[in-house]
């Protein structure tokens, strides 16, 4: 898929002012989401992937957060946009769903009313028309009796149901971009697969691009067109999903893919793992963030490796495995 550029994130940095000075969490992240594509940002907890998503939506409310760089949506700089203009984009052209559907809906209102609320915030629609649309959307999410479900309260629905409601709500105003922040993490494995199928199917039906934040390489392999691997607040490697899975170049990506158990071939006694743990934000190394855990690390890794793009495949490593 080679559509026009929808979202362009350039050198995005998020840091927090703390008692011990400014603490950088996202350290210069750049990527592009094209129209109709599913881009996956994958990384461990603390890699800065969720914060990147929240920064794009301007949903970081902490007054101590410092956000720099640029986020362009259809050429418009979101970081400098006045709040009312940003508000009409949120839930309109850019929608977001979150990790935990159990707590993401207001307990006091029926799920139908919550979808109606969003439609009425963006569309010049009457309550009845909005309700009809909400029920239609719930039906499109594969919910069997959408009229009945629309009248239920969040606590009466299962996690998978609630995530479908969240997706229906996100799609209610035909967003060009759907940001999904770990949409399947809190769900049962079977429900996870259903939700992923749904996201894949909806990309076709609603034509939305999807920015999928996840820590699950299996999810990436299943749905993403392209993938960005984040480690310690920076991009380690980025490229087309197929190429990246076939020939990972960054030692971290190689380690990650090596840790996925194989269904075929000889059974391993122990699953290979990357030794150590990701550094906490306040003691990230000054050079390559992965160097302390990396078998290939040498003296040169004390400097920050540049992200070098070759043939659409970007790697930030001095010892990147040749493609």
């Amino acid at each position: 898929m080679n559509g026009e550029t929808l979202l362009e994130v350039d050198d995005l940095r998020v840091s927090f002012r703390t008692g011990q000075g400014v603490l950088p969490i996202v350290e210069g992240v750049s990527f592009v989401v094209k129209a109709g594509e599913i881009l996956s940002v994958v990384g461990e907890s603390g890699s800065g992937k969720s914060l990147t998503a929240l920064a794009i939506m301007r949903l970081i409310t902490d007054p101590n957060a410092v956000i720099t760089g640029s986020v362009r949506f259809r050429g418009q700089d979101l970081l400098g946009l006045p709040e009312p203009a940003m508000r009409s984009l949120r839930g309109g052209a850019i929608a977001m769903i979150f990790q935990d559907p159990m707590t993401a809906l207001t307990p006091a209102y029926t799920v139908g009313a919550q979808i109606v609320e969003q439609i009425m915030a963006h569309r010049n629609a009457g309550r009845m028309a909005a309700r009809t649309r909400a029920i239609d959307l719930l039906g499109a999410m594969g919910i069997a009796s959408p009229r009945d479900i629309a009248g239920r309260y969040p606590h009466q629905l299962s996690g998978g149901m609630r995530q479908r409601v969240m997706i229906a709500m996100a799609l209610s105003c035909d967003p060009a971009l759907l940001i999904a922040d770990e949409p399947t993490t809190a769900l049962d494995v079977t429900v996870q697969a259903q939700i992923l199928e749904l996201i894949l199917r909806l990309r076709g039906e609603f034509g939305s691009s999807v920015l999928l934040i996840t820590h699950d390489m299996g999810v990436v392999a299943k749905v993403a067109d392209r993938v960005v691997v984040m480690y310690a607040g920076a991009i380690a490697e980025a490229g087309a999903t197929r190429a990246l899975f076939a020939r990972p170049a960054h030692p971290y990506t190689i380690g990650l893919l090596g840790a996925i158990p194989r269904l075929r071939g000889p059974r391993l006694v122990r699953l290979p793992a990357i030794p150590g743990a990701p550094p906490a934000p306040h003691d990230r190394p000054s050079g390559c963030g992965f160097a302390p855990r990396c078998a290939a690390a040498t003296g040169i890794c004390a400097a920050h490796p540049p992200l070098i793009t070759h043939d659409g495949h970007a790697v930030a490593c001095f010892h990147a495995r040749a493609a």
Partner: peptide, 8 residues
């Protein structure tokens, strides 16, 4: 956060 993301 959801309400914010809805554009309210």
């Amino acid at each position: 956060r959801t309400a914010r993301a809805k554009g309210l």
